[in-house]
């Protein structure tokens, strides 16, 4: 009975993925050297041979890494402040980041475009990295805060008594202590940013397209579905790797405090 549930769940989750992987190895349009319906690596070869698609992978890597780095760098001090001190307006701050997290991206897309075009941030991975902080920074703060809170206060006090200054305590004691938390925060920021399409679309008009938009551009009158699926399957690899790295810490999640 228990195992049956797992089998049903696995089938539901895996079926669409299996279909996509099958298609990615199938020639869905007749190409030179392979007939329609042939099985092989031809789609992956054509993806890697297309300069725009290679550039898109680089763009995605740049903006996601930048976004994760920003969220962790700004999230850590914020989470520390929230976990260790009470201050005037702390609950309002928590409410405010909740509001930012739940603001639908489509609501902000137009002014973001106008604002960013004035600063030359359109068509650049930096623009996407900045705007994705809107929903990722709150998530990073929630996760890091729950991990820092789990570290006893005495830990901070001992370090200070040992003569560590603020920054040295932070990087040499606290950061190693909550390393799994940083991993989980990075994971959630990564997945929310890697797959996002609304801001990615509005901020990349002519260039700097990330993977999501490069795939979008592959749809045409005669779409090579096999190649689209090959590109998509390649785009899953970093995500799956991230899942693997944080697998033992995934079950720490984050909770609402507002």
């Amino acid at each position: 009975m228990r195992h049956l549930g797992v089998v049903v769940l696995a089938t539901f989750i895996l079926l669409p993925l299996v279909q996509a992987i099958l298609l990615s190895f199938t020639a869905t349009l007749p190409q030179d050297g392979s007939a329609q319906g042939a099985i092989g690596l031809m789609n992956y070869r054509s993806v890697l041979a297309t300069p725009e698609l290679r550039a898109a992978m680089v763009n995605s890597f740049i903006y996601v890494s930048l976004n994760v780095a920003l969220c962790i760098a700004l999230g850590l001090p914020t989470a520390y402040a929230l976990a260790r001190y009470r201050f005037t307006g702390d609950r309002h701050f928590l409410m405010a980041i909740l509001v930012f997290r739940v603001t639908p991206p489509v609501v902000l897309s137009l002014p973001i475009f106008i604002l960013f075009s004035q600063f030359g941030l359109v068509n650049s991975p930096v623009g996407i990295a900045l705007v994705h902080c809107l929903f990722n920074l709150p998530v990073a703060i929630w996760i890091l805060e729950s991990f820092i809170r789990a570290v006893p206060r005495e830990f901070d006090e001992t370090a200070y008594l040992d003569g560590h200054s603020g920054p040295s305590f932070f990087f040499r004691h606290l950061v190693p202590q909550i390393a799994p938390g940083i991993g989980v925060a990075a994971f959630f920021c990564f997945i929310f940013s890697w797959v996002e399409v609304v801001f990615a679309r509005i901020l990349t008009v002519t260039g700097g397209k990330p993977i999501t938009m490069a795939i979008q551009a592959m749809f045409s009158f005669r779409t090579d579905v096999g190649m689209v699926m090959a590109m998509t399957c390649l785009s899953l690899v970093p995500g799956v790797a991230m899942i693997w790295f944080v697998r033992n810490h995934l079950a720490r999640g984050f909770t609402l405090r507002a």
Binding site: P16, V195, E196, V197, T212, Q216, T232
Partner: peptide
């Protein structure tokens, strides 16, 4: 967690 890493438009 697998479906979470699929690009939304796909």
């Amino acid at each position: 967690a697998l479906p979470l890493v699929v690009p939304w438009n796909m």
